[in-house]
Protein backbone atom coordinates (compact mmCIF):
# COMPACT_ATOMS: atom_id res chain seq x y z
CA UNK A 1 0.00 0.00 0.00
CA UNK A 2 3.06 2.20 0.15
CA UNK A 3 2.99 2.47 -3.65
CA UNK A 4 -0.57 3.65 -3.66
CA UNK A 5 0.19 6.57 -1.38
CA UNK A 6 2.98 7.66 -3.70
CA UNK A 7 2.12 10.38 -6.23
CA UNK A 8 1.52 8.83 -9.64
CA UNK A 9 3.76 11.41 -11.29
CA UNK A 10 6.83 10.19 -9.47
CA UNK A 11 7.37 7.33 -11.88
CA UNK A 12 8.57 8.13 -15.43
CA UNK A 13 5.50 6.51 -16.98
CA UNK A 14 3.23 8.33 -14.53
CA UNK A 15 4.78 11.66 -15.38
CA UNK A 16 4.38 10.98 -19.11
CA UNK A 17 0.73 10.12 -18.56
CA UNK A 18 0.22 13.29 -16.57
CA UNK A 19 1.78 15.35 -19.36
CA UNK A 20 -0.35 13.62 -22.00
CA UNK A 21 -3.45 14.53 -20.02
CA UNK A 22 -2.55 18.19 -20.47
CA UNK A 23 -3.37 17.89 -24.17
CA UNK A 24 -7.12 17.55 -23.79
CA UNK A 25 -8.32 21.15 -24.00
CA UNK A 26 -11.03 22.58 -26.23
CA UNK A 27 -10.47 25.83 -28.06
CA UNK A 28 -12.91 28.57 -27.00
CA UNK A 29 -15.91 28.99 -29.32
CA UNK A 30 -14.85 32.55 -30.07
CA UNK A 31 -11.63 31.44 -31.79
CA UNK A 32 -13.00 30.35 -35.19
CA UNK A 33 -15.24 33.41 -35.77
CA UNK A 34 -12.41 35.75 -34.73
CA UNK A 35 -9.95 34.12 -37.14
CA UNK A 36 -12.40 34.07 -40.04
CA UNK A 37 -13.34 37.69 -39.63
CA UNK A 38 -9.71 38.82 -39.25
CA UNK A 39 -8.69 37.15 -42.52
CA UNK A 40 -11.80 38.38 -44.30
CA UNK A 41 -13.45 34.97 -44.67
CA UNK A 42 -16.48 35.60 -42.47
CA UNK A 43 -19.94 35.54 -44.01
CA UNK A 44 -21.89 38.80 -44.21
CA UNK A 45 -25.52 39.50 -45.09
CA UNK A 46 -27.83 42.04 -46.68
CA UNK A 47 -31.52 42.51 -46.09
CA UNK A 48 -33.20 42.82 -49.49
CA UNK A 49 -36.75 43.18 -50.80
CA UNK A 50 -38.24 40.23 -52.66
CA UNK A 51 -41.72 39.49 -54.06
CA UNK A 52 -42.24 37.54 -50.81
CA UNK A 53 -41.19 40.45 -48.58
CA UNK A 54 -37.78 41.10 -47.04
CA UNK A 55 -35.20 38.31 -47.21
CA UNK A 56 -31.68 38.00 -45.84
CA UNK A 57 -28.90 37.18 -48.31
CA UNK A 58 -25.58 35.99 -46.88
CA UNK A 59 -22.35 35.69 -48.82
CA UNK A 60 -18.76 34.67 -48.20
CA UNK A 61 -15.63 35.12 -50.26
CA UNK A 62 -16.66 32.03 -52.22
CA UNK A 63 -20.12 33.28 -53.15
CA UNK A 64 -23.75 33.53 -51.98
CA UNK A 65 -24.13 31.16 -49.04
CA UNK A 66 -27.71 31.58 -47.84
CA UNK A 67 -31.05 33.22 -48.66
CA UNK A 68 -33.71 33.08 -46.00
CA UNK A 69 -36.73 34.82 -44.56
CA UNK A 70 -36.52 35.67 -40.87
CA UNK A 71 -38.44 37.76 -38.38
CA UNK A 72 -35.38 39.83 -37.46
CA UNK A 73 -31.66 40.14 -38.20
CA UNK A 74 -30.92 38.31 -34.94
CA UNK A 75 -33.24 35.46 -35.95
CA UNK A 76 -31.45 35.18 -39.29
CA UNK A 77 -28.03 35.17 -37.62
CA UNK A 78 -29.20 32.36 -35.33
CA UNK A 79 -30.55 30.32 -38.22
CA UNK A 80 -27.35 30.77 -40.19
CA UNK A 81 -25.15 29.72 -37.25
CA UNK A 82 -27.37 26.68 -36.60
CA UNK A 83 -27.14 25.55 -40.20
CA UNK A 84 -23.46 26.19 -40.93
CA UNK A 85 -21.80 26.33 -37.50
CA UNK A 86 -20.13 29.62 -38.32
CA UNK A 87 -21.16 33.20 -37.61
CA UNK A 88 -22.57 35.82 -39.97
CA UNK A 89 -22.70 39.56 -39.54
CA UNK A 90 -24.37 42.48 -41.29
CA UNK A 91 -22.68 43.75 -44.45
CA UNK A 92 -22.02 47.46 -44.68
CA UNK A 93 -21.14 47.54 -48.39
CA UNK A 94 -24.04 47.76 -50.83
CA UNK A 95 -25.01 44.56 -52.66
CA UNK A 96 -24.12 44.14 -56.35
CA UNK A 97 -26.91 45.45 -58.55
CA UNK A 98 -27.37 42.01 -60.13
CA UNK A 99 -28.11 40.36 -56.78
CA UNK A 100 -30.49 43.10 -55.73
CA UNK A 101 -32.33 42.94 -59.07
CA UNK A 102 -32.63 39.14 -58.99
CA UNK A 103 -34.04 39.16 -55.48
CA UNK A 104 -36.43 42.01 -56.24
CA UNK A 105 -37.89 40.47 -59.39
CA UNK A 106 -36.98 36.81 -59.51
CA UNK A 107 -37.49 36.49 -63.25
CA UNK A 108 -34.31 38.35 -64.20
CA UNK A 109 -31.52 36.60 -66.02
CA UNK A 110 -27.91 36.52 -64.89
CA UNK A 111 -28.23 34.10 -61.98
CA UNK A 112 -26.04 31.63 -63.85
CA UNK A 113 -23.11 34.01 -63.60
CA UNK A 114 -23.51 34.33 -59.81
CA UNK A 115 -21.10 32.43 -57.61
CA UNK A 116 -22.57 30.26 -54.86
CA UNK A 117 -20.85 29.01 -51.73
CA UNK A 118 -22.15 25.43 -51.51
CA UNK A 119 -19.08 24.01 -49.78
CA UNK A 120 -21.06 22.02 -47.18
CA UNK A 121 -23.09 20.16 -49.79
CA UNK A 122 -22.37 16.82 -51.41
CA UNK A 123 -21.66 16.43 -55.10
CA UNK A 124 -25.17 15.07 -55.63
CA UNK A 125 -26.74 18.02 -53.82
CA UNK A 126 -24.73 20.49 -55.86
CA UNK A 127 -25.68 18.72 -59.10
CA UNK A 128 -29.39 18.99 -58.21
CA UNK A 129 -29.13 22.70 -57.42
CA UNK A 130 -27.07 23.60 -60.49
CA UNK A 131 -29.53 21.72 -62.67
CA UNK A 132 -32.41 23.74 -61.18
CA UNK A 133 -30.42 26.85 -62.12
CA UNK A 134 -30.87 25.91 -65.79
CA UNK A 135 -34.68 26.12 -65.78
CA UNK A 136 -35.66 29.32 -67.61
CA UNK A 137 -37.85 31.94 -66.00
CA UNK A 138 -41.58 31.33 -66.58
CA UNK A 139 -41.11 27.58 -66.93
CA UNK A 140 -41.28 24.63 -64.55
CA UNK A 141 -39.87 21.10 -64.53
CA UNK A 142 -40.75 18.10 -62.35
CA UNK A 143 -38.41 16.60 -59.73
CA UNK A 144 -38.12 13.49 -61.90
CA UNK A 145 -36.69 15.64 -64.71
CA UNK A 146 -33.88 16.94 -62.50
CA UNK A 147 -33.12 13.44 -61.24
CA UNK A 148 -32.92 12.07 -64.78
CA UNK A 149 -30.91 14.95 -66.19
CA UNK A 150 -28.18 14.60 -63.56
CA UNK A 151 -27.92 10.86 -64.18
CA UNK A 152 -29.82 9.59 -61.13
CA UNK A 153 -33.28 8.77 -62.56
CA UNK A 154 -34.24 6.77 -59.47
CA UNK A 155 -33.33 9.47 -56.98
CA UNK A 156 -36.54 11.51 -57.35
CA UNK A 157 -37.28 11.61 -53.65
CA UNK A 158 -33.69 12.53 -52.79
CA UNK A 159 -33.88 15.30 -55.39
CA UNK A 160 -37.01 16.63 -53.69
CA UNK A 161 -35.37 16.75 -50.29
CA UNK A 162 -32.26 18.49 -51.62
CA UNK A 163 -34.47 21.19 -53.15
CA UNK A 164 -36.47 21.48 -49.92
CA UNK A 165 -33.20 22.34 -48.16
CA UNK A 166 -31.87 24.63 -50.90
CA UNK A 167 -29.70 27.13 -48.96
CA UNK A 168 -30.12 29.82 -51.65
CA UNK A 169 -33.78 29.86 -52.77
CA UNK A 170 -34.87 32.61 -55.21
CA UNK A 171 -31.33 32.79 -56.62
CA UNK A 172 -31.25 29.05 -57.35
CA UNK A 173 -34.88 28.88 -58.48
CA UNK A 174 -36.14 25.74 -56.75
CA UNK A 175 -39.62 27.29 -57.02
CA UNK A 176 -39.48 26.27 -60.71
CA UNK A 177 -39.39 22.59 -59.78
CA UNK A 178 -42.81 20.98 -59.35
CA UNK A 179 -44.22 17.59 -58.46
CA UNK A 180 -43.81 14.87 -61.03
CA UNK A 181 -47.62 14.70 -61.50
CA UNK A 182 -47.59 18.36 -62.52
CA UNK A 183 -49.00 19.85 -59.30
CA UNK A 184 -47.13 22.88 -57.94
CA UNK A 185 -46.16 21.25 -54.65
CA UNK A 186 -44.43 22.61 -51.59
CA UNK A 187 -41.90 25.37 -51.16
CA UNK A 188 -39.39 25.97 -48.40
CA UNK A 189 -39.56 29.75 -48.49
CA UNK A 190 -43.19 30.14 -47.45
CA UNK A 191 -45.18 27.14 -48.69
CA UNK A 192 -47.11 26.52 -51.91
CA UNK A 193 -48.80 29.94 -51.86
CA UNK A 194 -45.39 31.65 -52.02
CA UNK A 195 -44.35 29.28 -54.81
CA UNK A 196 -47.45 30.16 -56.87
CA UNK A 197 -46.82 33.84 -56.26
CA UNK A 198 -43.25 33.55 -57.62
CA UNK A 199 -44.39 31.60 -60.68
CA UNK A 200 -47.02 34.28 -61.38
CA UNK A 201 -44.36 36.99 -61.14
CA UNK A 202 -42.31 35.05 -63.67
CA UNK A 203 -45.22 34.74 -66.10
CA UNK A 204 -46.09 31.08 -65.67
CA UNK A 205 -49.78 30.39 -64.97
CA UNK A 206 -49.97 28.30 -61.78
CA UNK A 207 -53.79 28.05 -61.99
CA UNK A 208 -53.59 26.57 -65.47
CA UNK A 209 -50.76 24.22 -64.40
CA UNK A 210 -52.89 22.93 -61.52
CA UNK A 211 -55.90 22.41 -63.82
CA UNK A 212 -53.83 20.46 -66.35
CA UNK A 213 -52.33 18.37 -63.54
CA UNK A 214 -55.81 17.66 -62.16
CA UNK A 215 -56.91 16.46 -65.63
CA UNK A 216 -53.89 14.18 -65.81
CA UNK A 217 -52.30 16.18 -68.64
CA UNK A 218 -48.52 16.12 -68.34
CA UNK A 219 -47.42 17.07 -71.85
CA UNK A 220 -48.66 19.19 -74.70
CA UNK A 221 -47.98 18.23 -78.29
CA UNK A 222 -47.53 20.47 -81.32
CA UNK A 223 -49.48 18.81 -84.11
CA UNK A 224 -47.58 20.53 -86.91
CA UNK A 225 -44.06 19.83 -85.73
CA UNK A 226 -44.99 16.54 -84.08
CA UNK A 227 -43.09 17.19 -80.87
CA UNK A 228 -44.27 17.18 -77.26
CA UNK A 229 -43.24 19.42 -74.35
CA UNK A 230 -43.75 20.21 -70.70
CA UNK A 231 -46.76 22.57 -70.54
CA UNK A 232 -44.60 25.62 -69.75
CA UNK A 233 -41.94 25.03 -72.38
CA UNK A 234 -40.98 28.25 -74.16
CA UNK A 235 -41.46 26.41 -77.44
CA UNK A 236 -45.22 26.19 -76.83
CA UNK A 237 -47.51 29.08 -76.03
CA UNK A 238 -49.33 27.65 -73.05
CA UNK A 239 -52.05 30.27 -73.21
CA UNK A 240 -53.23 28.98 -76.57
CA UNK A 241 -54.29 25.47 -75.80
CA UNK A 242 -56.62 25.07 -78.75
CA UNK A 243 -54.09 23.67 -81.18
CA UNK A 244 -52.36 21.49 -78.63
CA UNK A 245 -52.65 17.75 -78.28
CA UNK A 246 -52.76 16.62 -74.66
CA UNK A 247 -50.83 13.61 -73.41
CA UNK A 248 -50.91 11.98 -70.00
CA UNK A 249 -47.61 10.12 -70.42
CA UNK A 250 -44.47 10.02 -72.54
CA UNK A 251 -45.52 6.62 -73.81
CA UNK A 252 -48.81 7.98 -75.10
CA UNK A 253 -47.00 10.81 -76.92
CA UNK A 254 -44.45 8.45 -78.48
CA UNK A 255 -47.19 6.04 -79.56
CA UNK A 256 -48.93 8.93 -81.34
CA UNK A 257 -45.73 9.54 -83.32
CA UNK A 258 -44.55 12.63 -81.39
CA UNK A 259 -40.88 13.35 -80.49
CA UNK A 260 -39.63 14.85 -77.26
CA UNK A 261 -38.88 18.56 -77.55
CA UNK A 262 -35.15 19.34 -77.67
CA UNK A 263 -35.55 22.44 -75.45
CA UNK A 264 -37.45 21.14 -72.42
CA UNK A 265 -36.42 17.49 -72.90
CA UNK A 266 -39.39 15.53 -71.48
CA UNK A 267 -37.28 12.51 -72.48
CA UNK A 268 -33.58 12.25 -73.26
CA UNK A 269 -33.03 13.68 -76.73
CA UNK A 270 -30.36 12.21 -78.95
CA UNK A 271 -27.84 14.87 -79.88
Amino acid sequence: MIRASKKSTETPAGLERALRRLSREKAPRTLLPAVLSRVGLADRYWRLESPLGPVYVAHSKAGISMVSRASSPAAFERRFAERFGRPVSAEKAVPPASVRALIRNVKGEGRRSLRFDLRDLSEFERAVLYKALEIPSGEVRPYSWIAREIGHPDAVRATGSVLAKNPVPLLIPCHRVVRSDGHIGQYSLGGSRAKRRLLEVEGADPGLLERLAAEGVRYLGNAEQKHFCFPTCGGIDTLVLTNKVRFSSEREALAAGYHPCADCRPLPVAA
Binding site: S23, K26, A27, L31, L32, L36, L41, R86
Partner: peptide, 24 residues
Protein backbone atom coordinates in the same frame (compact mmCIF):
# COMPACT_ATOMS: atom_id res chain seq x y z
CA UNK B 1 -6.49 24.32 -54.82
CA UNK B 2 -8.68 26.84 -53.00
CA UNK B 3 -7.28 28.55 -49.91
CA UNK B 4 -10.33 30.69 -49.13
CA UNK B 5 -12.74 27.82 -49.56
CA UNK B 6 -10.82 25.42 -47.32
CA UNK B 7 -9.11 27.53 -44.69
CA UNK B 8 -12.06 27.19 -42.33
CA UNK B 9 -11.48 23.41 -42.30
CA UNK B 10 -7.90 24.03 -41.24
CA UNK B 11 -9.04 26.13 -38.30
CA UNK B 12 -11.66 23.56 -37.31
CA UNK B 13 -9.19 20.70 -37.56
CA UNK B 14 -6.34 22.28 -35.64
CA UNK B 15 -7.94 24.78 -33.27
CA UNK B 16 -8.05 22.49 -30.23
CA UNK B 17 -4.45 21.40 -30.73
CA UNK B 18 -3.02 24.86 -31.33
CA UNK B 19 -5.04 26.33 -28.47
CA UNK B 20 -3.81 23.61 -26.09
CA UNK B 21 -0.26 24.06 -27.31
CA UNK B 22 -0.52 27.83 -26.71
CA UNK B 23 -2.10 27.24 -23.33
CA UNK B 24 0.78 25.01 -22.25
Amino acid sequence: EDLDGNFESVVRRFQDRLFTFSLR
